[in-house]
Structures are given as structure tokens and as C-alpha cells.
Design a protein around this nucleic acid. Structure first.
Length: 164
DNA sequence: GCCAACGTTGGC
DNA sequence: GCCAACGTTGGC
């Protein structure tokens, strides 16, 4: 498959929000703490520099809140090797890292989040992995068409213009 | 706060 | 290798 590819990253905003990414140096942060093998495989093998990312807030007000760009492809997640870190995993070592992360840079925050409830009403998004029942994957692929539709929704409504 | 869905663990 | 028990995710 060609580049860029498209992804959706979930985050509990109480842990790490799109505003946290906006406030980070260079609007760039590493996407650490992923401890699921399927998501790990995407981070380690599939996601490349230049890929595009939808930033999703889970929980309180589930919604897509912005877009980001992958600026560094998969490399070992150092938080897994830090005993002080809540995501520490003693099975992961520098010689044989178990968990991976990528770096992303924020490109835009939507002025109004696109809530899950709205996304469910869009026929073109019916097939989105995010909308499938019981889906818990925190890093998931998005089709180019789905991605474009999300950006269209973010732009089209006047109060949903994209803030740079 | 509830609970369904899911992933992981571990006894056998 | 099966599967029950358990812990976690995450929408509602």
C-alpha cells in the first residue's frame, strides 16, 4: 500500500489530550504506552513517516479532535524499560524490545470535536473500525476515503473550521 | 457507575 | 491446546 497511510490513535484525554500535544515542544510527542500486540504490530511494522493520524479522545466525550502527522516511524518504547513508569514491562529489554512507539506532530485541532454520535450518522463512515461494536484497538487503520470524509466534516460546518 | 466486549493469564 | 477466570477498555 502506498504512502501516506491513514490511522486513528485513541487517547484518554485525562492521560494525554490533543491540547497536551499542542503544548508539547514542536507540537511533537512520542506515542508511548501502547501495550496491545495488534496495535504494537502497527506501530512497529506498518506506520511510516509522513502517515496521517486522526487524534481521538475516548471516554468522557468520545470524539475525533484533530489531525497529526507521523514524523518518526516505529522505535522501541522506552517507557516499557523504566521501572518508575506505570507502563513498565520487565519483559522488554534494549536487546529485545517488546513494545514500540512512533512520534507524531500535531497539524490541526478541530474547532469543534467530531463526536462519535455524529460519525455514526454518516453513511460513508459505516465501515470505520472505530464505529464497530466492541472495538477496543487503540491504534487502527483508516481508509483514505474515511480520512477525507472526516476532514470534510471538520471543515464544512462553519463552526467546525480547522484551527491551525 | 454499569456492564458488554475483549485480551491475557494460567491451571489442567 | 482448551477455556474459565480475571482485568481492562470504553461507550453509555
Amino acid at each position: 500500500m502506498g504512502r501516506p497511510r491513514h490511522w486513528l490513535f485513541k487517547s484518554d484525554p485525562e492521560e494525554f489530550s490533543v491540547e497536551d500535544l499542542k503544548a508539547a515542544p514542536g507540537r511533537t510527542a512520542c506515542w508511548d504506552g501502547v501495550r496491545n500486540y495488534q496495535a504494537r504490530n502497527f506501530l512497529r511494522e506498518e506506520i511510516g513517516e509522513g502517515d496521517r493520524v486522526l487524534f481521538y479522545h475516548s471516554r468522557r466525550r468520545p470524539s475525533i479532535v484533530g489531525v497529526a502527522r507521523v514524523v518518526r516511524a516505529g522505535y522501541p518504547d522506552h517507557t516499557a524499560m523504566d521501572p518508575q513508569n506505570p507502563h513498565f514491562d520487565p519483559r522488554s529489554t534494549p536487546e529485545n524490545p517488546l513494545w514500540y512507539m512512533v512520534d507524531i506532530r500535531l497539524e490541526a485541532v478541530f474547532k469543534e470535536p467530531l463526536p462519535l454520535s455524529l460519525l455514526r450518522t454518516i453513511p460513508e463512515l459505516k465501515t470505520m473500525a472505530l464505529l464497530r461494536k466492541g472495538n477496543r484497538l487503540s491504534v487502527q487503520p483508516v481508509t483514505p476515503k474515511e480520512f477525507e470524509m472526516i476532514l470534510l466534516l471538520a471543515r464544512n460546518t462553519p463552526e467546525r473550521t480547522v484551527e491551525r
